[in-house]
Amino acid sequence: SELMNSSKLIRMLEEDGWRLVRVTGSAHHFKHPKKPGLVTVPHPKKDLPIGTVKSIQKSAGL
Rank of each mutant, 00 (worst) to 15 (best):
S7Q: 10
P36E: 09
K46I: 14
W18L: 00
V41L: 05
K35I: 03
H28R: 08
S59V: 11
E2R: 06
L48W: 02
P49Y: 05
V53M: 04
Q57F: 15
P49K: 09
D16T: 04
P36V: 08
T52L: 15
K58P: 02
S6G: 04
T52A: 08
L9E: 01
V21R: 04
S55D: 12
G25C: 11
E15M: 11
L48Q: 01
G17I: 00
D16L: 05
G61E: 05
E14N: 10
S55H: 14
L13S: 00
D47G: 08
A60D: 02
K35P: 00
T52R: 09
D47I: 13
P42V: 04
F30D: 01
L13H: 00
H32D: 01
I10A: 02
K31Q: 14
S55Y: 07
S1W: 02
L9S: 01
F30M: 06
S6Q: 02
G37N: 06
G61W: 03
G17L: 03
L38E: 12
V23S: 09
I10N: 02
L62Y: 02
I50P: 14
S59Q: 15
M12P: 00
G17Q: 04
D16W: 03
S26Y: 10
S55F: 09
V21M: 07
S55G: 09
A60I: 05
S59H: 11
H28I: 06
L62E: 03
T40F: 11
M12Y: 07
T52F: 12
K34G: 08
F30T: 00
G61I: 02
K46S: 14
N5C: 14
W18T: 00
K34Q: 13
P33T: 07
K58N: 11
K58L: 13
I56D: 01
S55I: 08
L20P: 06
T24S: 13
V21S: 08
G25F: 09
K31G: 07
V41D: 00
S7D: 14
K46T: 13
L3Q: 13
G61V: 02
T24P: 01
R19W: 10
G61P: 01
I10Q: 02
L62C: 06
L3F: 11
P42D: 06
L13W: 01
P36Y: 07
M4S: 11
P44R: 04
S6T: 04
K35E: 02
L3M: 11
V39K: 01
K45M: 11
K58I: 12
I56M: 02
A60Q: 01
L9H: 01
T52G: 03
I10P: 00
R19Y: 12
P33Q: 09
G51A: 14
